[in-house]
Amino acid sequence: MAVKDFMTKKVIYVSPETTVASAADLMREHGIHRLPVIENDKLVGLVTEGTIAEASPSKATSLSIYEMNYLLNKTKVGQIMIKDVVTVSKLASLEDAVALMLAHSIGVLPVVDHDVISGIITDKDVFKAFLEVSGYGEDGVRVRLITDNGIGVLEKIIHLISEENLNISHTVNIPRKDGKVIIEVQIDGEFDKEQLKAKFTENGFEVDGIVRTSSKQ
């Protein structure tokens, strides 16, 4: 899974000369929490709700609302933006992006190659990718199997399902600490769940669950 397959390609951005007030308005308008700062087609920083809040006068200030608005309209994004921005390549794996987010305690990564931004990936994009890969929200049947983690195990599962003339739409493998593996298989169509469960059991698989899923669209 590559970052380019899950990133948001339409990037809303500002320049260093954009006022803080304008940047805040842009975030509210589009329902976003951060904006890349672009200058001469290159990423030079990142402005977030947090950096704007830090730049805004405290509620305890003696300034009037007009004076505060004046300051926000005078202050430029380039004065408050984060300059040391953590980025990721569009060719990097989604797992690399998640690792970077966790390591730096951040929820967004501009996607940059050769100083040019081509997208942005956020923690929400990662959540959506997980749902897509797992087959969440699709009609079908999800089978959860517990088995030894050995050569040919997945091939055997696929063979047993294909014998029933059924199609697999998604698979997820989850290693366990005891050396076994959980394999979740999403299968399309209508069929006898108990018959399939019995077939897996007869062939040495522990069936931990078999449930029908419905469309969430």
Rank of each mutant, 00 (worst) to 15 (best):
T75G: 06
A92V: 14
Q79I: 10
A99H: 03
A103D: 14
T87C: 12
V77E: 04
G107T: 08
I80C: 11
A99L: 06
V116W: 07
P110Y: 04
S89R: 14
V116I: 14
S118H: 02
H114L: 03
L102C: 12
H114Y: 09
I120W: 02
T87K: 07
L109P: 05
V88W: 01
I106D: 05
G107I: 05
P110N: 02
I106R: 04
H114A: 10
D113Q: 06
I121Q: 09
S93G: 11
L91H: 11
I121V: 14
L102M: 11
S89E: 14
L109T: 01
T122Y: 01
I80E: 02
D84H: 14
K76M: 12
S89D: 09
K83I: 06
T87L: 00
H104G: 05
V112R: 02
K76E: 12
D96A: 11
H114F: 13
V111D: 02
A92L: 11
D84L: 05
H104N: 15
G119D: 10
H114V: 12
K76D: 09
G107Y: 04
K124M: 15
I117M: 15
V112P: 08
I120R: 02
G119A: 05
K90L: 06
K90Y: 15
V88L: 05
D123M: 09
P110S: 05
G107L: 07
D96F: 00
K124E: 08
S89C: 08
L100K: 14
V112L: 04
D123C: 10
S93A: 00
V98A: 15
K76I: 10
D115C: 00
K124I: 15
S93C: 01
L100C: 07
L109V: 09
T75W: 10
D84M: 03
G107M: 07
L91E: 09
T87A: 06
V108Q: 05
A103W: 00
A103L: 12
M81L: 05
H114Q: 13
S89T: 15
D115M: 07
V86W: 05
V86N: 08
H114N: 15
I121L: 11
V108C: 13
V112I: 12
V108M: 09
S105P: 07
A103P: 06
L102W: 02
I117Q: 07
T122E: 01
L94I: 15
M101S: 13
